[in-house]
């Protein structure tokens, strides 16, 4: 989603545009439209979550208590921090500080990778505790009957939601890697840094998704 047509030309803007401003505005609007799509993409999952939580409130509460609240909360802080450094990336690009831009992009990527590492630890623990939906799923419950199946639905949604989110983060990290490479080559100047800005929009959006996943998955259990 970088400024299209920009990559190999030395011109200030791609030939389908009239001027650089038009190109910049088009790239930004393009990313916003893409994020709208993403809202609905995750929105389907959030709707599924809401429906099943409405149908099975007790099982969802109980299942949510099995998530790792401490690691989840730390991870939220990590991702918020990465959003902060991403905002600083855009500022560094805007003010034309190349070294700072490269360093901040690397830091943001590291924070993203850190998030994934912590998430991986959580997943490993949950799989070990037989919380991965499927034949190995076990959920000893205080409620008789259906509760196990209903709790399994929570974990289906948990793994799909966090999995799709993690996939978005991986894409974001790769994207920032490409940007860091080009930034090191000096491609971005204070009068042209649209790719950094647009990638930033994406990164912040991935953060926002987590801002909603965190309370829905970790906090609905109520006091533990």
């Amino acid at each position: 989603m970088k400024g299209d047509g920009m990559a190999e030309s030395t011109r200030a803007f791609a030939e389908q545009f009239d001027d650089p401003l038009q190109q910049k505005e088009a790239a930004q609007a393009g990313m916003w439209v893409f994020l709208v799509t993403e809202v609905l993409f995750f929105g389907a999952l959030l709707t599924a979550y809401t429906v099943y939580r409405h149908l099975y409130p007790a099982a969802f509460r109980e299942a949510s208590r099995r998530t790792d609240l401490a690691l989840g909360s730390i991870n939220t802080a990590v991702l918020l921090t990465s959003s902060f450094t991403m905002a600083l990336c855009v500022h560094a690009a805007k003010t034309g500080r190349r070294a700072a831009l490269v360093a901040l992009l690397a830091l943001t990527m590291a924070l993203g990778a850190g998030f994934l590492a912590i998430k991986g630890v959580e997943w490993a623990r949950e799989i070990h505790e037989h919380l991965l939906p499927g034949p190995s799923f076990e959920f000893p419950s205080a409620y008789p009957g259906e509760a196990g199946r209903q709790a399994q639905l929570f974990f289906v949604l948990y793994f799909v939601m966090t999995g799709v989110h993690a996939l978005h983060l991986v894409i974001g990290i790769v994207l920032l890697g490409v940007l860091a490479f080009f930034a090191a080559l000096g491609r971005y100047r204070s009068d042209y840094y649209t790719p950094v800005e647009v990638a930033g929009l994406y990164w912040h959006f991935v953060d926002i998704v987590w801002i909603f996943l965190y309370p829905l998955l970790y906090l609905v259990g109520g006091p533990r």
């Binding site: 429906v51 099943y52 939906p133 499927g134 034949p135 199946r149 209903q150 399994q152 639905l153 949604l157």
Partner: peptide, 16 residues
């Protein structure tokens, strides 16, 4: 993966 998101036998709702 034989999950039960829309499968009533596993607690899911096909109408969803």
């Amino acid at each position: 993966l034989h999950l039960g998101i829309f499968n009533p036998a596993l607690g899911g709702d096909p109408l969803l």
